[in-house]
Nucleic acid binder design. Sequence first.
DNA 1: TGTACATCAGTGAACGCGCGTTCACTGATGTAC
DNA 2: TGTACATCAGTGAACGCGCGTTCACTGATGTAC
Lengths: 213, 213
Amino acid sequence: MGDDTSATRVRVRNRRGEGDRLRGEIVAAAVELLDETGDESAVTLRSVARRVGIAAPSIYRHFPDQPAVMLAVVRSAFDELDEQLRGAVEVEGEAPRGRLVALCRSYLEFAQAHPGRYRTMFGGVWVPDLSEGSVTKDDMVGLGRTTLKLLSDALEDCVDAGCAASTDVPADTVALWLGLHGLAHQRAVAPSFPWPPDITERVIAALAHFTEE
Amino acid sequence: MGDDTSATRVRVRNRRGEGDRLRGEIVAAAVELLDETGDESAVTLRSVARRVGIAAPSIYRHFPDQPAVMLAVVRSAFDELDEQLRGAVEVEGEAPRGRLVALCRSYLEFAQAHPGRYRTMFGGVWVPDLSEGSVTKDDMVGLGRTTLKLLSDALEDCVDAGCAASTDVPADTVALWLGLHGLAHQRAVAPSFPWPPDITERVIAALAHFTEE
DNA sequence: TGTACATCAGTGAACGCGCGTTCACTGATGTAC
DNA sequence: TGTACATCAGTGAACGCGCGTTCACTGATGTAC
Protein backbone atom coordinates (compact mmCIF):
# COMPACT_ATOMS: atom_id res chain seq x y z
CA MET A 1 0.00 0.00 0.00
CA GLY A 2 1.22 3.51 0.72
CA ASP A 3 0.76 5.18 -2.62
CA ASP A 4 3.84 6.98 -3.83
CA THR A 5 2.66 9.99 -5.80
CA SER A 6 6.00 10.35 -7.49
CA ALA A 7 5.98 6.68 -8.38
CA THR A 8 8.02 5.79 -11.36
CA ARG A 9 6.29 4.23 -14.27
CA VAL A 10 6.86 0.60 -14.98
CA ARG A 11 8.94 0.54 -18.08
CA VAL A 12 9.93 -2.08 -20.54
CA ARG A 13 13.24 -1.56 -22.21
CA ASN A 14 12.98 -0.51 -25.84
CA ARG A 15 13.92 -3.05 -28.45
CA ARG A 16 17.03 -2.65 -30.50
CA GLY A 17 16.70 0.11 -33.05
CA GLU A 18 13.92 1.76 -31.07
CA GLY A 19 16.19 3.54 -28.65
CA ASP A 20 15.10 6.90 -30.01
CA ARG A 21 11.74 6.41 -28.39
CA LEU A 22 13.26 7.27 -25.06
CA ARG A 23 14.19 10.69 -26.39
CA GLY A 24 10.53 11.46 -26.94
CA GLU A 25 9.59 10.11 -23.54
CA ILE A 26 12.20 12.32 -21.90
CA VAL A 27 10.89 15.46 -23.58
CA ALA A 28 7.29 14.50 -22.78
CA ALA A 29 8.14 13.95 -19.12
CA ALA A 30 9.93 17.31 -18.96
CA VAL A 31 6.85 18.98 -20.45
CA GLU A 32 4.64 17.28 -17.87
CA LEU A 33 6.80 18.47 -15.01
CA LEU A 34 6.85 21.98 -16.43
CA ASP A 35 3.10 22.13 -16.85
CA GLU A 36 2.44 20.64 -13.43
CA THR A 37 4.80 22.78 -11.40
CA GLY A 38 5.05 25.87 -13.58
CA ASP A 39 8.63 26.00 -12.46
CA GLU A 40 11.48 25.27 -14.83
CA SER A 41 13.82 24.59 -11.93
CA ALA A 42 11.66 21.55 -11.17
CA VAL A 43 12.78 20.08 -14.49
CA THR A 44 16.03 18.43 -13.46
CA LEU A 45 17.64 15.46 -15.11
CA ARG A 46 16.89 13.44 -12.03
CA SER A 47 13.23 14.45 -11.79
CA VAL A 48 12.74 13.76 -15.48
CA ALA A 49 14.41 10.37 -15.12
CA ARG A 50 12.18 9.52 -12.15
CA ARG A 51 9.11 10.48 -14.14
CA VAL A 52 10.11 8.42 -17.13
CA GLY A 53 11.14 5.52 -14.96
CA ILE A 54 14.77 5.32 -15.96
CA ALA A 55 18.10 5.99 -14.30
CA ALA A 56 19.31 9.57 -14.62
CA PRO A 57 22.47 8.72 -16.60
CA SER A 58 20.33 7.14 -19.31
CA ILE A 59 19.42 10.63 -20.45
CA TYR A 60 22.99 11.13 -21.64
CA ARG A 61 22.42 8.58 -24.39
CA HIS A 62 20.03 11.10 -25.96
CA PHE A 63 21.06 14.59 -24.81
CA PRO A 64 24.52 16.03 -24.22
CA ASP A 65 23.50 17.88 -21.05
CA GLN A 66 20.64 19.36 -19.08
CA PRO A 67 20.12 22.58 -21.10
CA ALA A 68 19.77 20.46 -24.22
CA VAL A 69 16.70 18.82 -22.73
CA MET A 70 15.16 22.22 -22.00
CA LEU A 71 15.94 23.37 -25.53
CA ALA A 72 14.10 20.36 -26.89
CA VAL A 73 11.13 21.21 -24.67
CA VAL A 74 11.07 24.80 -25.84
CA ARG A 75 11.44 23.78 -29.49
CA SER A 76 8.55 21.36 -29.31
CA ALA A 77 6.43 23.95 -27.50
CA PHE A 78 7.01 26.49 -30.27
CA ASP A 79 6.12 23.88 -32.87
CA GLU A 80 2.94 23.10 -31.00
CA LEU A 81 2.01 26.77 -30.68
CA ASP A 82 2.62 27.48 -34.34
CA GLU A 83 0.58 24.48 -35.38
CA GLN A 84 -2.30 25.55 -33.18
CA LEU A 85 -2.14 29.10 -34.55
CA ARG A 86 -2.13 27.89 -38.15
CA GLY A 87 -5.22 25.84 -37.35
CA ALA A 88 -6.94 28.89 -35.89
CA VAL A 89 -6.27 31.03 -38.94
CA GLU A 90 -7.41 28.40 -41.38
CA VAL A 91 -10.63 27.38 -39.66
CA GLU A 92 -11.97 30.91 -39.58
CA GLY A 93 -12.33 31.14 -43.33
CA GLU A 94 -14.06 34.48 -43.35
CA ALA A 95 -13.03 38.11 -43.05
CA PRO A 96 -9.46 39.22 -42.32
CA ARG A 97 -10.54 40.88 -39.10
CA GLY A 98 -12.13 37.71 -37.82
CA ARG A 99 -9.04 35.75 -38.74
CA LEU A 100 -6.73 38.12 -36.88
CA VAL A 101 -8.94 38.02 -33.80
CA ALA A 102 -9.08 34.23 -33.95
CA LEU A 103 -5.30 34.15 -34.19
CA CYS A 104 -4.87 36.38 -31.15
CA ARG A 105 -7.39 34.39 -29.15
CA SER A 106 -5.66 31.16 -30.04
CA TYR A 107 -2.36 32.60 -28.87
CA LEU A 108 -3.88 33.56 -25.54
CA GLU A 109 -5.53 30.16 -25.22
CA PHE A 110 -2.22 28.42 -25.63
CA ALA A 111 -0.70 30.52 -22.87
CA GLN A 112 -3.63 29.89 -20.58
CA ALA A 113 -3.67 26.16 -21.25
CA HIS A 114 0.09 25.75 -20.74
CA PRO A 115 1.28 28.51 -18.39
CA GLY A 116 4.46 26.71 -17.43
CA ARG A 117 5.50 26.15 -21.00
CA TYR A 118 4.51 29.68 -21.98
CA ARG A 119 6.69 31.18 -19.28
CA THR A 120 9.60 29.04 -20.32
CA MET A 121 9.18 29.99 -23.99
CA PHE A 122 8.75 33.72 -23.55
CA GLY A 123 9.37 34.46 -19.92
CA GLY A 124 13.10 34.66 -20.04
CA VAL A 125 12.99 32.20 -17.21
CA TRP A 126 15.06 29.78 -19.16
CA VAL A 127 18.03 31.65 -20.58
CA PRO A 128 20.82 29.10 -20.87
CA ASP A 129 24.41 30.08 -20.32
CA LEU A 130 25.69 30.08 -23.89
CA SER A 131 29.32 30.26 -22.79
CA GLU A 132 29.18 26.70 -21.53
CA GLY A 133 27.02 23.70 -22.31
CA SER A 134 25.81 22.42 -25.63
CA VAL A 135 23.25 25.11 -26.48
CA THR A 136 24.51 27.72 -28.94
CA LYS A 137 23.25 31.14 -29.90
CA ASP A 138 22.00 29.75 -33.20
CA ASP A 139 19.76 27.44 -31.22
CA MET A 140 18.08 30.40 -29.56
CA VAL A 141 17.73 32.78 -32.50
CA GLY A 142 14.68 32.13 -34.57
CA LEU A 143 12.55 30.72 -31.81
CA GLY A 144 9.24 32.55 -32.15
CA ARG A 145 9.94 33.98 -35.55
CA THR A 146 7.21 31.91 -37.16
CA THR A 147 4.74 33.04 -34.54
CA LEU A 148 5.41 36.69 -35.29
CA LYS A 149 5.14 36.03 -39.03
CA LEU A 150 1.66 34.56 -38.63
CA LEU A 151 0.55 37.68 -36.76
CA SER A 152 2.19 39.95 -39.28
CA ASP A 153 0.46 38.27 -42.23
CA ALA A 154 -2.94 38.45 -40.56
CA LEU A 155 -2.52 42.14 -39.75
CA GLU A 156 -1.34 42.85 -43.29
CA ASP A 157 -4.50 41.20 -44.64
CA CYS A 158 -6.58 43.47 -42.42
CA VAL A 159 -4.84 46.56 -43.68
CA ASP A 160 -5.24 45.45 -47.30
CA ALA A 161 -8.93 44.85 -46.68
CA GLY A 162 -9.23 48.29 -45.12
CA CYS A 163 -10.41 47.11 -41.74
CA ALA A 164 -7.26 48.07 -39.85
CA ALA A 165 -5.42 51.38 -39.92
CA SER A 166 -1.71 50.81 -39.67
CA THR A 167 1.00 52.98 -41.13
CA ASP A 168 3.72 50.47 -40.38
CA VAL A 169 2.66 46.84 -40.29
CA PRO A 170 5.93 45.33 -39.00
CA ALA A 171 6.11 47.82 -36.12
CA ASP A 172 2.43 47.50 -35.28
CA THR A 173 2.75 43.72 -35.36
CA VAL A 174 5.39 43.92 -32.68
CA ALA A 175 3.19 46.29 -30.67
CA LEU A 176 0.23 43.95 -31.00
CA TRP A 177 2.30 40.98 -30.00
CA LEU A 178 3.65 42.87 -26.98
CA GLY A 179 0.10 43.47 -25.80
CA LEU A 180 -0.80 39.82 -26.28
CA HIS A 181 2.39 38.78 -24.54
CA GLY A 182 1.79 41.10 -21.61
CA LEU A 183 -1.69 39.68 -21.16
CA ALA A 184 -0.67 36.07 -21.70
CA HIS A 185 2.32 36.34 -19.44
CA GLN A 186 0.63 38.16 -16.63
CA ARG A 187 -2.31 35.76 -16.69
CA ALA A 188 0.11 32.87 -16.45
CA VAL A 189 1.84 34.52 -13.53
CA ALA A 190 -1.03 36.06 -11.58
CA PRO A 191 -4.23 34.19 -12.43
CA SER A 192 -5.94 35.74 -9.41
CA PHE A 193 -5.53 39.28 -10.72
CA PRO A 194 -8.92 41.06 -11.05
CA TRP A 195 -9.06 40.98 -14.82
CA PRO A 196 -11.67 43.13 -16.56
CA PRO A 197 -13.91 40.68 -18.43
CA ASP A 198 -13.32 42.24 -21.84
CA ILE A 199 -9.60 42.79 -21.42
CA THR A 200 -8.75 40.59 -24.38
CA GLU A 201 -10.94 42.54 -26.78
CA ARG A 202 -9.64 45.85 -25.49
CA VAL A 203 -6.03 44.90 -26.01
CA ILE A 204 -6.56 43.41 -29.44
CA ALA A 205 -8.81 46.16 -30.79
CA ALA A 206 -6.57 48.98 -29.61
CA LEU A 207 -3.33 47.50 -30.90
CA ALA A 208 -4.71 46.16 -34.17
CA HIS A 209 -6.02 49.65 -34.96
CA PHE A 210 -9.32 48.25 -36.14
CA THR A 211 -11.34 50.85 -38.01
CA GLU A 212 -14.90 51.56 -36.86
CA GLU A 213 -17.39 49.05 -38.14
CA MET B 1 47.99 39.10 -6.02
CA GLY B 2 45.47 37.01 -7.91
CA ASP B 3 42.40 39.19 -7.65
CA ASP B 4 39.34 37.40 -6.39
CA THR B 5 36.38 38.95 -8.17
CA SER B 6 33.96 37.55 -5.63
CA ALA B 7 36.08 38.94 -2.81
CA THR B 8 34.17 39.67 0.32
CA ARG B 9 34.15 43.19 1.61
CA VAL B 10 36.11 44.02 4.69
CA ARG B 11 33.57 44.60 7.35
CA VAL B 12 33.59 46.06 10.80
CA ARG B 13 31.05 44.67 13.17
CA ASN B 14 28.19 47.04 13.93
CA ARG B 15 28.09 48.63 17.33
CA ARG B 16 25.48 47.67 19.84
CA GLY B 17 22.09 49.04 18.92
CA GLU B 18 23.06 49.35 15.27
CA GLY B 19 22.48 45.73 14.40
CA ASP B 20 19.62 46.68 12.11
CA ARG B 21 22.11 48.14 9.68
CA LEU B 22 22.99 44.65 8.57
CA ARG B 23 19.41 44.12 7.46
CA GLY B 24 19.79 46.94 4.98
CA GLU B 25 23.15 45.65 3.80
CA ILE B 26 21.66 42.22 3.19
CA VAL B 27 18.85 43.59 1.05
CA ALA B 28 21.27 45.85 -0.83
CA ALA B 29 23.58 42.93 -1.56
CA ALA B 30 20.67 40.81 -2.77
CA VAL B 31 19.63 43.66 -5.10
CA GLU B 32 23.17 43.91 -6.44
CA LEU B 33 23.31 40.20 -7.17
CA LEU B 34 19.91 40.33 -8.84
CA ASP B 35 20.85 43.28 -11.05
CA GLU B 36 24.22 41.82 -11.95
CA THR B 37 23.11 38.32 -12.83
CA GLY B 38 19.48 38.92 -13.77
CA ASP B 39 18.83 35.57 -12.19
CA GLU B 40 16.94 35.26 -8.94
CA SER B 41 18.37 31.81 -8.34
CA ALA B 42 21.75 33.50 -7.96
CA VAL B 43 20.41 35.21 -4.86
CA THR B 44 21.10 32.55 -2.26
CA LEU B 45 21.68 33.13 1.42
CA ARG B 46 25.23 32.06 0.95
CA SER B 47 25.92 34.32 -2.04
CA VAL B 48 24.34 37.26 -0.26
CA ALA B 49 26.41 36.56 2.84
CA ARG B 50 29.57 36.37 0.75
CA ARG B 51 28.75 39.69 -0.86
CA VAL B 52 28.06 41.41 2.44
CA GLY B 53 31.11 39.85 4.02
CA ILE B 54 29.38 37.95 6.79
CA ALA B 55 28.78 34.32 7.61
CA ALA B 56 25.59 32.87 6.13
CA PRO B 57 23.93 32.10 9.47
CA SER B 58 24.15 35.77 10.42
CA ILE B 59 21.27 36.44 8.06
CA TYR B 60 18.97 34.56 10.42
CA ARG B 61 19.32 37.34 12.97
CA HIS B 62 17.38 39.54 10.54
CA PHE B 63 15.23 37.31 8.35
CA PRO B 64 13.38 34.12 9.23
CA ASP B 65 14.32 32.36 5.99
CA GLN B 66 15.43 32.79 2.40
CA PRO B 67 12.06 33.79 0.84
CA ALA B 68 11.82 36.58 3.42
CA VAL B 69 14.96 38.14 1.97
CA MET B 70 13.50 38.02 -1.53
CA LEU B 71 10.26 39.56 -0.28
CA ALA B 72 12.23 42.43 1.22
CA VAL B 73 14.00 42.90 -2.12
CA VAL B 74 10.72 42.95 -4.04
CA ARG B 75 9.12 45.33 -1.53
CA SER B 76 11.97 47.79 -1.75
CA ALA B 77 11.95 47.56 -5.55
CA PHE B 78 8.25 48.44 -5.67
CA ASP B 79 8.83 51.35 -3.33
CA GLU B 80 11.64 52.57 -5.55
CA LEU B 81 9.53 52.23 -8.70
CA ASP B 82 6.59 54.08 -7.19
CA GLU B 83 8.82 56.86 -5.98
CA GLN B 84 10.39 57.23 -9.41
CA LEU B 85 6.97 57.27 -11.05
CA ARG B 86 5.65 59.92 -8.68
CA GLY B 87 8.68 62.02 -9.53
CA ALA B 88 7.98 61.64 -13.25
CA VAL B 89 4.35 62.73 -12.91
CA GLU B 90 5.16 65.74 -10.80
CA VAL B 91 8.05 67.11 -12.80
CA GLU B 92 6.06 67.27 -15.98
CA GLY B 93 3.71 69.95 -14.68
CA GLU B 94 1.94 70.50 -17.96
CA ALA B 95 -0.85 68.80 -19.86
CA PRO B 96 -2.44 65.50 -18.78
CA ARG B 97 -1.29 63.80 -21.93
CA GLY B 98 2.31 64.76 -21.37
CA ARG B 99 2.06 63.56 -17.80
CA LEU B 100 0.70 60.18 -18.79
CA VAL B 101 3.40 59.74 -21.42
CA ALA B 102 6.07 60.73 -18.91
CA LEU B 103 4.68 58.22 -16.48
CA CYS B 104 4.77 55.42 -19.04
CA ARG B 105 8.30 56.31 -20.11
CA SER B 106 9.45 56.35 -16.53
CA TYR B 107 7.98 52.90 -16.00
CA LEU B 108 9.85 51.58 -19.02
CA GLU B 109 13.04 53.27 -17.91
CA PHE B 110 12.89 51.55 -14.57
CA ALA B 111 12.53 48.18 -16.24
CA GLN B 112 15.39 48.89 -18.60
CA ALA B 113 17.67 50.16 -15.86
CA HIS B 114 16.96 47.22 -13.53
CA PRO B 115 15.99 44.22 -15.69
CA GLY B 116 16.76 41.70 -12.98
CA ARG B 117 14.62 43.43 -10.41
CA TYR B 118 11.85 44.03 -12.93
CA ARG B 119 11.66 40.36 -13.80
CA THR B 120 11.57 39.43 -10.16
CA MET B 121 8.81 41.94 -9.43
CA PHE B 122 6.55 41.17 -12.36
CA GLY B 123 8.00 38.16 -14.07
CA GLY B 124 6.50 35.52 -11.88
CA VAL B 125 10.03 34.26 -11.58
CA TRP B 126 9.86 34.56 -7.88
CA VAL B 127 6.65 32.96 -6.69
CA PRO B 128 7.31 31.73 -3.16
CA ASP B 129 5.73 28.59 -1.87
CA LEU B 130 3.12 30.05 0.47
CA SER B 131 2.40 26.69 2.08
CA GLU B 132 5.76 26.71 3.80
CA GLY B 133 8.19 29.40 4.82
CA SER B 134 7.51 32.76 6.39
CA VAL B 135 5.95 34.59 3.41
CA THR B 136 2.15 34.74 3.54
CA LYS B 137 -0.46 35.54 0.92
CA ASP B 138 -1.03 38.92 2.54
CA ASP B 139 2.60 39.73 1.84
CA MET B 140 2.06 39.19 -1.87
CA VAL B 141 -1.31 40.89 -2.35
CA GLY B 142 -1.04 44.61 -2.85
CA LEU B 143 2.39 44.60 -4.45
CA GLY B 144 2.01 46.77 -7.51
CA ARG B 145 -1.34 48.22 -6.55
CA THR B 146 0.12 51.70 -6.11
CA THR B 147 1.77 51.48 -9.51
CA LEU B 148 -1.53 50.72 -11.20
CA LYS B 149 -3.23 53.54 -9.28
CA LEU B 150 -0.73 56.07 -10.59
CA LEU B 151 -1.45 54.96 -14.15
CA SER B 152 -5.16 54.99 -13.57
CA ASP B 153 -5.14 58.55 -12.19
CA ALA B 154 -3.07 59.81 -15.09
CA LEU B 155 -5.38 58.20 -17.65
CA GLU B 156 -8.44 59.56 -15.86
CA ASP B 157 -6.97 63.05 -16.06
CA CYS B 158 -6.54 62.62 -19.81
CA VAL B 159 -10.12 61.51 -20.25
CA ASP B 160 -11.38 64.45 -18.17
CA ALA B 161 -9.29 66.82 -20.26
CA GLY B 162 -10.72 65.27 -23.41
CA CYS B 163 -7.40 64.11 -24.84
CA ALA B 164 -8.02 60.39 -24.40
CA ALA B 165 -11.08 58.43 -25.46
CA SER B 166 -11.80 55.72 -22.95
CA THR B 167 -15.19 54.29 -22.14
CA ASP B 168 -13.88 52.39 -19.14
CA VAL B 169 -10.85 53.85 -17.41
CA PRO B 170 -10.13 50.95 -14.99
CA ALA B 171 -10.24 48.40 -17.80
CA ASP B 172 -8.22 50.55 -20.19
CA THR B 173 -5.68 51.17 -17.45
CA VAL B 174 -5.12 47.45 -17.17
CA ALA B 175 -4.84 47.19 -20.96
CA LEU B 176 -2.32 50.04 -21.04
CA TRP B 177 -0.32 48.51 -18.25
CA LEU B 178 -0.31 45.14 -20.02
CA GLY B 179 1.20 46.79 -23.09
CA LEU B 180 3.85 48.50 -20.99
CA HIS B 181 4.54 45.30 -19.13
CA GLY B 182 4.84 43.29 -22.34
CA LEU B 183 7.35 45.78 -23.68
CA ALA B 184 9.25 46.18 -20.43
CA HIS B 185 9.40 42.48 -19.79
CA GLN B 186 10.39 41.45 -23.27
CA ARG B 187 13.07 44.11 -23.43
CA ALA B 188 14.45 42.84 -20.14
CA VAL B 189 14.43 39.30 -21.45
CA ALA B 190 15.50 39.73 -25.08
CA PRO B 191 17.44 42.97 -25.41
CA SER B 192 18.76 41.89 -28.79
CA PHE B 193 15.29 41.71 -30.33
CA PRO B 194 15.01 43.97 -33.41
CA TRP B 195 12.81 46.60 -31.81
CA PRO B 196 11.13 49.15 -34.05
CA PRO B 197 12.53 52.54 -32.96
CA ASP B 198 9.15 54.04 -32.13
CA ILE B 199 7.72 50.97 -30.44
CA THR B 200 7.21 52.80 -27.15
CA GLU B 201 5.12 55.55 -28.70
CA ARG B 202 3.07 53.05 -30.68
CA VAL B 203 2.18 51.01 -27.66
CA ILE B 204 1.36 53.99 -25.46
CA ALA B 205 -0.63 55.91 -28.06
CA ALA B 206 -2.72 52.92 -29.09
CA LEU B 207 -3.57 51.77 -25.59
CA ALA B 208 -4.11 55.22 -24.09
CA HIS B 209 -6.64 55.94 -26.86
CA PHE B 210 -5.21 59.39 -27.40
CA THR B 211 -7.51 61.52 -29.52
CA GLU B 212 -6.06 63.19 -32.63
CA GLU B 213 -4.17 66.36 -31.89
C1' DT C 1 36.43 54.87 39.39
C1' DG C 2 36.13 49.96 39.22
C1' DT C 3 34.03 45.67 38.24
C1' DA C 4 30.65 42.09 37.44
C1' DC C 5 27.36 40.96 34.31
C1' DA C 6 23.80 40.95 30.63
C1' DT C 7 23.23 41.72 26.03
C1' DC C 8 24.17 42.14 21.46
C1' DA C 9 26.31 41.05 16.79
C1' DG C 10 28.04 37.76 14.58
C1' DT C 11 30.79 33.02 13.86
C1' DG C 12 32.45 28.14 12.56
C1' DA C 13 31.48 23.63 12.02
C1' DA C 14 28.34 20.53 10.75
C1' DC C 15 23.87 18.24 9.01
C1' DG C 16 21.34 16.28 5.09
C1' DC C 17 19.71 17.21 0.56
C1' DG C 18 19.28 17.10 -4.52
C1' DC C 19 21.80 18.25 -8.17
C1' DG C 20 24.75 17.28 -12.85
C1' DT C 21 27.87 14.34 -14.37
C1' DT C 22 31.47 10.27 -14.81
C1' DC C 23 32.54 5.64 -15.03
C1' DA C 24 32.76 0.91 -15.68
C1' DC C 25 29.27 -2.36 -16.10
C1' DT C 26 25.23 -5.70 -17.64
C1' DG C 27 22.28 -8.24 -20.06
C1' DA C 28 19.08 -8.72 -23.86
C1' DT C 29 18.85 -8.79 -28.92
C1' DG C 30 20.00 -9.12 -33.41
C1' DT C 31 23.56 -10.79 -37.07
C1' DA C 32 27.32 -13.35 -39.53
C1' DC C 33 28.96 -17.61 -40.47
C1' DT D 1 19.93 -25.06 -37.11
C1' DG D 2 23.44 -23.70 -34.02
C1' DT D 3 26.67 -20.61 -32.04
C1' DA D 4 29.93 -16.87 -31.36
C1' DC D 5 29.97 -12.19 -31.27
C1' DA D 6 28.98 -7.19 -31.78
C1' DT D 7 25.82 -3.87 -30.65
C1' DC D 8 22.46 -1.62 -28.34
C1' DA D 9 19.67 0.23 -24.28
C1' DG D 10 20.10 1.16 -20.09
C1' DT D 11 22.14 0.69 -14.99
C1' DG D 12 24.27 1.41 -10.17
C1' DA D 13 27.52 3.45 -7.54
C1' DA D 14 30.05 7.22 -6.85
C1' DC D 15 32.18 12.07 -7.28
C1' DG D 16 32.08 16.90 -5.79
C1' DC D 17 29.20 20.88 -5.41
C1' DG D 18 26.35 24.56 -3.35
C1' DC D 19 22.44 24.92 -0.99
C1' DG D 20 19.28 26.13 3.51
C1' DT D 21 19.41 25.56 8.01
C1' DT D 22 20.83 24.10 13.07
C1' DC D 23 23.65 24.49 16.93
C1' DA D 24 26.56 25.81 20.49
C1' DC D 25 29.83 29.31 20.69
C1' DT D 26 32.68 33.93 21.16
C1' DG D 27 34.01 38.23 22.15
C1' DA D 28 33.15 43.12 22.19
C1' DT D 29 30.19 46.65 24.33
C1' DG D 30 27.29 48.88 27.15
C1' DT D 31 25.02 49.09 32.02
C1' DA D 32 24.04 48.60 37.10
C1' DC D 33 25.92 48.99 41.33
